[in-house]
């Protein structure tokens, strides 16, 4: 009968990996807590401009996003397009978008709804102005021009 014999008592013992799961779990929890799920897939390029006097957007659940920029897919041309949720939109769709966003929220929260404009820095103001006008018509007055923190001097 074959017997398993323990051979080679010498040599350094292996490092215990028992605490490895704990370390990984620690990292896991860190990322779980800090994770904000990507809400939309961007179909356009958005490189927001820089600014110094920025404010953090609080209460992400109360923010609706409007994206403007050049389409990633050349098929859609070079002109800046508006993206709402997951699809391209026209200026006339903005009002319905805001109404839909309001319906998704509590009635008491509606006055605190912010519209964040994520606009590419090379966009012309014309399209932005059209959107601002639509927002004024639907009475969504609280807006936020999304910008990054400027590091270098102007």
């Amino acid at each position: 009968m074959a017997k398993f014999t323990r051979k080679g008592k010498g040599g350094s013992p292996g490092i215990s990996t028992a605490s490895l799961p704990d370390i990984i779990f620690m990292l896991l929890f860190f990322f779980m807590v800090t994770t904000v799920m990507r809400e939309v897939e961007l179909k356009i390029f958005v490189k927001t401009p820089d600014a110094t006097e920025i404010k953090k957007l609080e209460k992400k659940s109360l923010v609706s996003y409007i994206y403007i920029g050049k389409p990633r897919n050349k098929m859609f041309g070079d002109e800046p397009r508006i993206q709402l949720n997951d699809q391209f939109a026209k200026v006339s769709d903005i009002q319905n978008f805001i109404i839909a966003e309001r319906k998704a929220r509590n009635e008491a929260e509606i006055p605190f709804l912010t519209t964040s404009l994520k606009v590419d820095q090379e966009t012309k103001m014309g399209i932005v102005t059209d959107i601002k006008l639509e927002l004024r018509k639907i009475n969504a007055l609280k807006i936020n021009y999304s910008t990054r923190k400027r590091i270098k001097e102007l």
């Binding site: 927001t48 600014a51 006097e53 920025i54 404010k55 953090k56 957007l57 992400k60 923010v63 912010t114 964040s116 404009l117 601002k132 006008l133 927002l135 004024r136 018509k137 009475n139 969504a140 007055l141 609280k142 807006i143 936020n144 021009y145 999304s146 910008t147 990054r148 923190k149």
Partner: peptide, 12 residues
């Protein structure tokens, strides 16, 4: 973190 310039639009 989302940051930006906060503004209020005038009523229509």
């Amino acid at each position: 973190v989302d940051t930006g310039l906060g503004r209020m639009l005038p009523p229509w």
